[in-house]
Amino acid sequence: MSGDIALTRTIAAAPPDSGAGRRTALLSGLGRTALYVALPLAVIALWQGLFELGLIRPILLPPPTRVAQAFWTLGLSGELPRHVAISLLRVLEGFAIAALAGLLLGLAIGLSKKVDRACDLLIQLVKPIPPIAWIPLAILWFGIGEAAKVYIIFLGAFFPILVNTVDGIRQTDQRFVELARILEVPRRRFILKVVLPGALPAIMTGLRVGVMVAWMCVVASELIAASSGVGYLIMDARQLSQTDVVLVGMITIGAMGKLLDSLLKRLERRLITWKTSFGGQ
C-alpha cells in the first residue's frame, strides 16, 4: 500500500537511443549555446563593423581585433594575470571577512529582537554610505597599502550579506516554529535544523550580491590609490592613452565577475537541492 512513491523531483531524461534522437538532443544543446552567446557576438560584430566603415575613431574606441591583440600581448607577458591575481586576492580577503562578520552579526540580529533593536539605527545610517566615499578615510587610516583596499571591499560586501541573512532568518516558516515548540526541540537544534537551512537561499543571494559588490569595490579602490591590480591597469593605460588596454581591463573585470557568480550559483545548487523554484518558461 505504500508503494506509490511520487517522484516529484526531476529525473534526468534517459539518453535517447536512436541516432536521430541523439542528433536532436545535440542540436537543441547547440541551439541553447547559440542563444546564449548570440547577443554578445552581435555586439562585437557591430562594433567591428562600425570601425571598418570608419565611423568610430580608434583612439576613442579601438576595434575588437585590436583589443584582442592587446589581450594576447598582456596575457603572454604575464602582466594581465599578475594584476588579476592581485585584485582577486584582495577581493577574497575582503569578502571572507565580510562573509564571516555578516553571517555572525546577521544570525545574532535575526535571532534576537534586542540585538536587532540595538544595532538597527547604526546599520541603517552606515549602510547608505557608498564604499567609495570611505576611500579618503581608508587612505588616511591605512595608507595606500593592502589594508585600505580590503577595508573598502569588506564594507561593500558586508551589508548585502548582513541584510539578506537577517531577512532569511526572519522568513522562517511559522509552522515550523510551532512544530519545534510542540516537540520541545532545543534551541541549538532549532537553529541548526530549522532556521539556517530555511535561511540558506537568502544567505546565498546575499553572498552572491556581496561578491559582486566586492569585485566592484576592488576596482574602484585600485583606480584611486594603487600600483597594481586591474583597476590600476585601467588607470595607468588611460594616462598613456592606451584605450585598448583600458578595454582589456574592463572586459577582464566583467569576465571575472561572471566567473565568481557562476561559482557561487553552482555552490548554491549543490547546497539547496530541496527547493524547486520557477525557472522561466
Binding site: S2, D4, A6, T8, R9, W274
Partner: peptide
C-alpha cells in the same frame, strides 16, 4: 532515506 518532496501526500 527519501526526501519529503519525493513522497505523496498520504505518505
Amino acid at each position: 532515506k527519501a526526501y519529503p518532496g519525493q513522497l505523496s501526500g498520504g505518505m
